[in-house]
Simulated scan of single mutants.
Amino acid sequence: MPFIETEDIQKEENVYINYQDSGEGQPVILIHGWPLSHRMWENQVQAIVEAGFRCIAYDRRGFGDSDRPWNNYDYDSLALDLRTLIEQLDLRDCILVGFSMGGGEVVRYLSRFGDDRIAKAVLISSVIPLVKKTDANPDGVPEEKLNEIMDSLQNNRVAFLAAFSKQFYNYADQKDKVSKQHLQYDWGIASAASPRATIETAKAWANTDFRQELRNVRVPTLIVHGDADQIVPIETSSEQSSKVIRDNKYVVIKDGPHGLFITHKEELNSLLIDFLKK
């Protein structure tokens, strides 16, 4: 099991980040969503490698098999982890693929480190630019709802994650595409993550405003979102991002839930591979 060693942004301690490295060719880096791990990408890894690319998927700090520091789960720290991965593996001409919370890492990375090693970007069900409802973002998630999530994570995390998984896939409408066993698999990954990391990263995706940073995304970008996403409303996320990111292709997947990497995997993989090869 390979690891890279990254230093905390506040230089408190070194953190080991677990990653999976498969295939050969132009590197494609997969950044997983909250509260899962790199294992969510198994269908995409296979498709990407078979299409002739090198695919690298890693566990965000606090999740999967990566280290679990107590502090530093803000997007600056997470973007620095990504930068360290790219530098230590000496990756160039990379394609960054961020799902949900991972879209924030893509945008923060490009804002802080530029695109000297980045060729393209992909944002899938992404939280950017802003999750929280404000006067300037009326379609966002109300703050009281976000507070309920934080309270549940603090006091009833394991039960909350089980219910969240169903909403993640719009399970009532997608039972023919998502098995009960898969819900249990996701629950196992999510509940085994660091409780502290689960809460602190939730604060990051709930409160970080990327609206000004979207203009730092100058590489060709594929934006994919489901119009039935119950986790990240399309109106407050990809609909806005597609109007600001300069060079983008925006695709809305009909009836797609948040977890469309499972429910609409064939459609998503086709879009992804076509964009990688273009």
Rank of each mutant, 00 (worst) to 15 (best):
M1R: 15
I4T: 07
T6C: 13
E7K: 13
K11H: 14
E13C: 07
N14Y: 10
V15L: 14
I17K: 13
I17D: 12
S22N: 13
I29Y: 00
W34F: 11
M40I: 10
N43K: 14
Q44G: 03
Q46W: 02
Q46S: 07
A47Q: 14
A47S: 13
I48R: 13
F53P: 01
C55S: 11
C55V: 06
I56T: 04
Y58R: 08
F63R: 15
G64K: 08
R68W: 10
Y73N: 08
D74I: 03
Y75K: 11
T84I: 07
T84E: 09
I86K: 04
D90K: 15
D93T: 03
C94L: 09
I95N: 06
F99Q: 12
S100K: 04
S100I: 06
G102T: 06
G102L: 08
V106M: 09
R108I: 06
Y109I: 09
S111A: 10
R112V: 01
G114W: 13
R117I: 05
I118R: 02
L123V: 04
S125V: 02
S125T: 05
S126N: 09
I128K: 06
L130I: 03
V131W: 01
V131Y: 04
V131R: 12
K133M: 09
K133D: 05
E143M: 11
E144I: 04
K145I: 03
M150S: 12
L153N: 04
Q154G: 07
N155Q: 07
R157G: 02
V158W: 05
A159T: 04
A163H: 15
K166F: 00
Q167G: 13
K175W: 02
S179M: 11
Q181P: 00
H182L: 14
A192G: 06
P195L: 06
A197F: 11
T201H: 05
T201Y: 01
A202V: 06
A204W: 01
W205G: 03
A206R: 14
A206Q: 15
N207E: 13
D209T: 00
E213T: 01
V219C: 02
L222D: 11
V224D: 02
G226Q: 08
A228Y: 09
V232F: 09
I234D: 08
K243G: 02
V244G: 01
I245D: 01
D247N: 14
D247F: 08
V252D: 09
D255L: 06
P257F: 00
H258D: 13
F261E: 07
T263M: 10
T263L: 09
H264N: 15
K265M: 08
E266F: 07
E266W: 06
L268N: 12
N269M: 10
L271Y: 12
